[in-house]
Each structure stands twice: as C-alpha cells, then as structure tokens.
C-alpha cells in the first residue's frame, strides 16, 4: 500500500511539485501498478545474481588524450540564462 503521503515524499525526492489532485491520482495509479509488480514476490530469487547489464564487456576505456572542447559561446548557446561566461541560476542559499 502506498499512501498519498508516500507519494508526496517520493515527489520530493524526484523534485516534482505535485498539486493535491495530481498526488491523489498518482497514488491510485501507483497503487495499481505496484500491486501488479508485486507478482514478482511469488518468485524465489535468493540465489540469483542480478543483471544490470546484458553484455559481458570489460576493460572499456579511452586513452588520456585531449580532445577539443566546446567554446564558451558554444556551450552557453544552450543555456536558459547566462551571465559573464557562466550559466546563471536563481541564487543558491547556503
């Protein structure tokens, strides 16, 4: 069971502001989905190794060779807001 309070807590972790009616609907949706997902509980996986990746790749790395960076102009072109060569954001209160 997932409560609306849980949903608001998770939304906090995910940094999404939820209006009450949205939280209410999500609670119902998630409850249904989690209930479905709980069918995995019928499986015993105690001795099973997890698979986070399907390929048996190893030792993949690159040489320590410098490649051209973007120019300041190129990197800031994507920015929502900029100031004196930097990305500008609302003031971070320490």
């Amino acid at each position: 069971m997932i409560s609306e309070k849980d949903v608001q807590y998770v939304a906090g972790l995910a940094r999404i502001h939820l209006k009450d009616e949205e939280a209410n609907r999500l609670t119902k949706d998630l409850e249904k989905i989690l209930d479905y997902i709980n069918k995995l509980d019928t499986l015993d996986v105690t001795d099973v190794q997890p698979t986070s990746h399907v390929l048996p790749l190893k030792n993949v790395y690159r040489e320590d060779t410098v490649r051209p960076s973007l120019t300041q102009q190129e990197s800031l072109k994507i920015s929502v807001d900029q100031h004196e060569g930097s990305f500008k954001v609302p003031k971070v209160i320490e």
Binding site: H83, S86, K88, P90, K91, V92
Partner: peptide, 11 residues
C-alpha cells in the same frame, strides 16, 4: 554566488 545580481553562476 553573485549577491549583487541576486543569482548564482556556474562554471
């Protein structure tokens, strides 16, 4: 932290 402009700048 740029207090004069009330913003923070990221490099």
């Amino acid at each position: 932290h740029d207090n004069a402009n009330n913003c923070s700048l990221v490099d």
